[in-house]
Design a protein around this nucleic acid. Structure first.
Lengths: 202, 202
DNA sequence: CGTCAAACGGAACGTTGTCCCGTTTGACGA
DNA sequence: TCGTCAAACGGGACAACGTTCCGTTTGACG
């Protein structure tokens, strides 16, 4: 059964309207606003995209796809795996910070966004893991950081990066990736990070 | 004019109830839930705490204070400024990850939480700046990262750290702090992070 | 014990995401 | 070309939330 012509048309109109509204008001824009911009009723949105996350996925699918495909290309053309990893993460960060509020919504623990979360992970995690593995095997970075952890960290660092001139997410992500090179144990307070009891503070 | 006895009593009951609900359901818990737990009406909350952010501040004021005061103590007792910085940030991270959703709400761009944002910044930013300065002056870390940027980065990394065993915020924060030691330029893609055009991907 | 402002509880309001239902309309066979 | 009818539609309805309003209760004080 093929879709009716008006349904196909509305889907495209909706995607265009949503993209425009996302640019203007962020991905948190009320569903009513998107419906109004598209000139349709709110129910039409939910008929085409069962949840807001599905709409977001549809709007950005092409760019996520391009980002995923950039991974192997960068690995093949960069001088070292770490350079490729850095370049790929730069690209990912660029994508996130130019979409108002997307990083924040990616980290939302709202159950409705689980599908969005999964989509990004399914598509980009293997790419990141490949780059990470290559750099680790080349001895350029420590081997005990999982791709999942790194991607979540990068995503988190991008939250709110678009409204604040004093906060440059790219810089901090750069520091994080630089920190991957360190060979000492990080975390768990093993290396002399003596912790203080409250008693010692008085 | 001194407060009426029932008002003073209710303020304490509210703080206790809010603390309990925050532990059980996170800082996003509906105001109605907190009111119910305290056995008061919703308006009573707003009478004592003009905005939800003020309630959160009141609940955590003591712990934030303790964290702020730990800064100078750590600087005086640690072997190096960088160790003090690392220990202090560990303490800050511990505070954030044990309060469900606090990190997320700290980064919310909701206007109502500006006062919460400001409170944390006013109290903790000078402390962080002092530690950062000391480490920079000792030549242990690069000098071009502002305390504001670092604190926002750390706060962001702590978002959602409480529900996901695969994501260890302390580890990533450790990597970030370790990245501070790097002396090369970070960010702006200056160091050989050749960017790809979409054309090169096909 | 009378007064009255401070403090109260809960209903009301505005804004959101989501669902329902009566109406419209595109596709297709006669 | 036209009648049929399920797919698709619009917008109002509902629920959950933060916040405010208002009529009622109550603690302090003379």
């Amino acid at each position: 059964m093929v879709k009716r012509a008006d349904a196909r048309r509305n889907e495209k109109v909706l995607l265009d309207a949503a993209a425009a509204v996302f640019v203007a008001s962020g991905v948190d824009a009320p569903v009513r606003d998107i419906a109004a911009a598209a000139g349709v009723g709110t129910a039409t949105i939910y008929r085409h995209f069962p949840t807001r996350a599905d709409l977001i996925i549809a709007v950005y699918r092409h760019q996520v796809e391009a980002c995923a495909q950039a991974g192997p290309v960068l690995l093949a053309t960069s001088v070292t795996p770490h350079a490729a990893l850095r370049a790929w993460i730069d690209r990912f960060v660029d994508f996130l910070v130019t979409k108002h509020g997307l990083a924040a919504v990616l980290r939302s623990d709202d159950r409705g966004f689980e599908v969005l979360h999964s989509y990004f992970l399914d598509r980009l995690l293997p790419v990141c893991a490949e780059l990470l593995d290559a750099a680790a095997k080349a001895g350029e970075i420590r081997a005990d950081v999982a791709a999942y952890e790194l991607m979540r960290g990068v995503g988190n660092l991008c939250i709110g990066a678009e409204n604040d001139a004093r906060y440059d997410a790219r810089r901090l992500v750069g520091l994080l990736v630089e920190g991957l090179r360190g060979h000492g144990r990080v975390g768990d307070g093993v290396v002399g990070t003596a912790t203080l009891t409250d008693r010692e503070l008085h």
